[in-house]
Simulated assay, not measured.
Amino acid sequence: MTRIAVLVSGGGTNLQALIDAQGRGELKNGVIAAVISSRADAFALERAARAGIPGYVVSRKDYGSNREMTAALVEQLRGLEIGLVVLAGFLHILTEEMVQAYPNAILNVHPALIPSFCGAGYYGLHVHEKALDYGVKVTGATVHFVNEEPDGGPIVLQKAVDIREDDTPETLQRRVMEQCEWSILPRAVSLFCEGRLHVEGRHVKITEGAVWQ
């Protein structure tokens, strides 16, 4: 059974999608063992408590640099015997020590179809503002492995939605979350825990087998 840690900074909507999937038995061979927040007041910690999942705080303000914070996170994760790290709205840059400690074992969900609208500075509502400003006709979400490059790791899953004429950044953000992120993030986590993801360079191969839809 793979022990999963979910790293958060805010409300935890993607965390809730994972909790709900776990409750339905859809995280095959995995269990959410910890939620670690960069803020003590993050509502995500309340979601974890309601689900009976231990919550922890590793606050950026308690450390002199991102590197020191990353080292503290790695120590916490190792102490909890974590096998998979999921970034679900974690708003801090982690240094290379995290990737070195968990190579091809950190998943992130990004609210766009990578390589579009991604990288440094593309987070939250900004992503959807840029998509609308550019005039693209479809957008969506991507789950990818994390490497040293922001949003640059191998892609695991993607799902798209059409952009509507009357979309605002807020309506688009909500639709991408509900129709894309909340679907592909739990599925990617389950695939990892089942041992069905294999990284070959920039490509992620998914081996055959029964998987929930």
Rank of each mutant, 00 (worst) to 15 (best):
I82G: 01
P111S: 10
Q100V: 11
L18K: 01
G83V: 00
F117W: 09
Y56S: 01
L172A: 08
L84Q: 01
G79R: 13
M98G: 05
V58E: 08
G30I: 12
S183A: 10
H128I: 13
A72T: 04
V136A: 11
V204N: 08
L84D: 06
A88G: 00
G153R: 02
E178M: 10
D41H: 08
H128P: 04
I82S: 05
H203P: 10
H144I: 06
E75W: 00
R175K: 13
M98K: 04
S9N: 02
N14V: 11
Y122H: 15
Q213W: 13
V58L: 07
A42C: 05
V161I: 11
E194L: 11
G209T: 13
A72H: 09
S65E: 12
A51F: 12
R39M: 03
F192E: 06
G140N: 09
Q100T: 15
T2W: 10
R175E: 02
E181T: 04
E68N: 07
R60G: 02
G152Y: 09
E46G: 08
Y102H: 03
P186W: 06
R3K: 14
L172S: 04
F90N: 00
V58R: 12
Q158I: 10
V136C: 15
V211A: 14
G79P: 14
I82C: 06
V86I: 13
A71S: 14
C118R: 03
Q179H: 12
R187M: 11
V8N: 05
T168K: 06
I36H: 05
N14H: 04
L91G: 05
R174K: 15
P186N: 04
R47Y: 09
D162H: 15
A71C: 11
A120F: 11
L73T: 01
E26N: 10
M177G: 13
A5V: 05
P54D: 01
A101P: 05
E68C: 02
Y123E: 08
G121K: 11
A40S: 15
E208M: 09
G140Q: 01
A51H: 14
I155A: 03
G195H: 04
V127S: 06
A34G: 07
N14T: 13
K130G: 00
N147W: 01
T171H: 06
I36E: 00
W212I: 12
A33C: 08
G153S: 10
F117S: 00
A141N: 11
S190E: 04
E194Q: 15
G140L: 09
K159Q: 15
